[in-house]
Design a protein around this nucleic acid. Structure first.
Length: 280
DNA sequence: CCAAGGCCTGAATG
DNA sequence: ACATTCAGGCCTT
């Protein structure tokens, strides 16, 4: 099989990983913490803060990863069809808040809420002749009132957001430290944050803390496993308990290997496209 | 350890 | 129209 190592920005942005992104004729623009990224169609990134960040994980050995996860026909097809789809390396705080908001919600609404949050609490800047709002720093959301946060449309998640921001602002949890910890240890720590359960934790770990074996098991992935992998991973109930989540994840990593998170992203993309679900 | 119910909100369904 | 249902879950009982 021929593995193409270039990046498909469109597929990567439109795969449920990020929300504060928009496109004009030539570029994608995205908010990433205190930074704004301008990305051309080849995945070349220009940073507002002039940082050299590897947002699309170009430094990953994608050829090795694709080979590693290509364990069955289903992923192989997804990988082939959505070539160039990459896992992103996001600002952890923004990623955390984004996925706390994501729970029991959907992409258009998550995007809407996050846009309200950056407008209300983020710093306004100009980059490439356009106005952007940066993502608010933890301290800013930690000090905000629950009601102010609620006005962004996040509902009961407002308390989670404030408490999460307080934990990060106070440095009780340090993302830079978590990047050095292993999967299990990291998960145990971030699940202590209110509004963060198994699924949200896996999103934060996969998309911002370099844990490529993290596999967010949302409704879609559970559905996919039931549909294409019923012989390998049997799922009896509609909603899976914490224990079942743990066991299932173990089986998945057993099957797909240490880059299982990549496999998950390809499968997720495939099934959502098949069902013509909306992206950004 | 598991099951059930509640939760903000808005778009989609009937 | 208007009421239900549902959506990238989590938390409490």
């Amino acid at each position: 099989m021929q593995i193409i190592t270039s990046i498909d920005v469109e597929n990567s942005i439109n795969s449920g990983q990020v929300f504060l992104w928009k496109k004009d004729e030539n570029y994608w623009y995205g908010i990433n913490g205190q930074d704004v990224l301008q990305v051309d169609l080849n995945g070349n990134v220009k940073s507002y803060q002039k940082l050299k960040i590897d947002f699309f994980r170009k430094n990953d050995d994608i050829e090795k990863i694709i080979k590693s996860i290509s364990k069955d026909k289903v992923v192989k097809n997804a990988v082939k069809k959505y070539q160039g789809l990459r896992i992103t390396r996001q600002d952890p705080f923004q990623c955390l808040i984004s996925f706390i908001i994501s729970s029991n919600s959907n992409i258009p609404k998550i995007k809407h809420c996050l846009e309200n949050i950056v407008q209300k609490f983020g710093k306004k800047i100009t980059f490439e002749n356009q106005k952007f709002f940066l993502f608010p720093e933890p301290n800013k959301l930690a000090k905000a009132s629950i009601n102010e946060i609620k006005k962004c449309g996040v509902g009961y998640r407002a308390t989670f957001i404030k408490e999460a921001a307080k934990i990060i602002a106070s440095k009780d949890i340090k993302f830079e430290q978590l990047k050095k910890c292993d999967y299990q240890e990291t998960k145990k720590i971030i699940c202590q944050i209110p509004g963060v359960g198994n699924k949200v934790a896996d999103c934060v770990m996969l998309f911002s803390l370099n844990k490529l074996q993290a596999v967010p098991l949302d409704r879609w992935i559970v559905r996919i496993l039931g549909k294409y992998y019923s012989n390998k991973f049997e799922i009896k109930t509609k909603t899976i308990t914490e224990k079942q989540y743990e066991i299932l994840h173990e089986k998945i990593v057993n099957h797909f290997g240490p880059y299982a998170g990549y496999a998950q992203q390809f499968l997720f993309k495939m099934e959502r496209e098949n069902h013509q679900k909306k992206w950004l």
